[in-house]
């Protein structure tokens, strides 16, 4: 690669970065500007009687401006783990509950989905026998399971985990099956001509060959799980980032609502980045 190309790449990244910052500044600036509280009393004048009656509050509720959200974010993030009773816990604790549920349900799903996906991918019989179940169960909204889960499990925490489990299982199962079924016959033949046992073939040839596809399924699953946990926690209540959003809505604290929305986005991105890093480890070039 010659020098000009390197510089071009570099400047592309820099220019993209600048554009991002400009867009962000524009968006935040407009938001801030359009959401300023009206200057009461027409600029320094005496408050009207009506304004006095409202004690300085707006006539219509406003979406809080970014500056207020930044202040709230600073407050919350500087003490994320305080616990002042059931309805007042730090954002770190709430996120911790949500992550615990997501990861527990997700890994339980991986434990079931990957072996079954392997079976379905390897055996046409298993594929044909299980496919009707998969096709019917897959399109069900995970939240539709919630009443049944609450009835059977009789525990809100475990029901939320079950909902995560049920929504994570399908992308992992289908991608594993797809990846395993698509392993090139040449590579399977290499295992056969070297007299590898079925178990060794599975672990030394099929698993590494299908790993990138499996990881794609795992990435889709973690994304869905993180989407679903917010809704699930809004339903079951008690703890978690979903409950936090809903609770702050009930408190009419929109600043906290927006702050937590942003935080949900950031955590979701980090989860995906983590799995992306794992996917890079198992990727190979044909």
């Amino acid at each position: 690669m010659d020098r000009t190309t390197t510089e071009w790449n570099f400047s592309l990244n820099v220019r993209a970065g600048i554009l991002t910052v400009v867009l962000l500044a524009l968006f935040v600036g407009l938001w801030e500007g359009l959401n300023r509280a009206p200057i009461l009393g027409g600029g320094g004048a005496e408050l009207s009687e009506y304004e006095q009656l409202l004690a300085g509050a707006d006539e219509t509720a406003r979406v809080p401006p970014p500056s207020e959200i930044a202040v709230r974010a600073w407050e919350q993030l500087s003490d994320p783990f305080y616990d002042a009773g059931p309805n007042d816990k730090g954002i770190g604790i709430q996120l911790g509950y949500s992550l615990f549920r997501v990861l527990t349900g997700y890994f339980a799903a991986a434990l079931i989905a990957i072996p079954i996906g392997f079976l379905v991918g390897m055996s046409p019989l298993a594929y044909k026998a299980l496919n009707p179940f998969i096709q019917v169960l897959r399109p069900i909204s995970p939240l539709a399971w919630m009443p049944l889960a609450l009835f059977i499990i009789r525990d809100a925490q475990a029901s939320a985990i079950f909902v995560i489990f049920i929504c994570s299982i399908w992308p992992m199962l289908l991608n594993t099956a797809f990846g395993v079924a698509g392993v090139r016959q040449d590579w399977v033949n290499v295992a056969r001509t070297h007299e590898l046992s079925p178990l060794k073939t599975a672990f030394q040839v099929i698993l590494p060959a299908a790993a990138p596809t499996i990881l794609t399924g795992m990435r889709i699953s973690i994304g869905i799980a993180w989407l679903v946990i917010v809704a699930a926690e809004m339903l079951v209540g008690g703890t978690g980032i979903g409950y936090y959003v809903w609770n702050e809505w009930n408190n009419l604290d929109l600043t906290s609502v927006i702050f937590s929305i942003l935080l949900i986005g950031v955590v979701g991105m980090l989860l995906d980045l983590g799995l992306g890093a794992v996917a890079k480890l198992v990727a190979y070039q044909e």
């Binding site: 040449d186 590579w187 290499v190 590494p208 060959a209 070039q285």
Partner: peptide, 8 residues
């Protein structure tokens, strides 16, 4: 003919 090496 197509080598059949394991690419990983």
């Amino acid at each position: 003919q197509n080598y059949s090496l394991l690419p990983w």
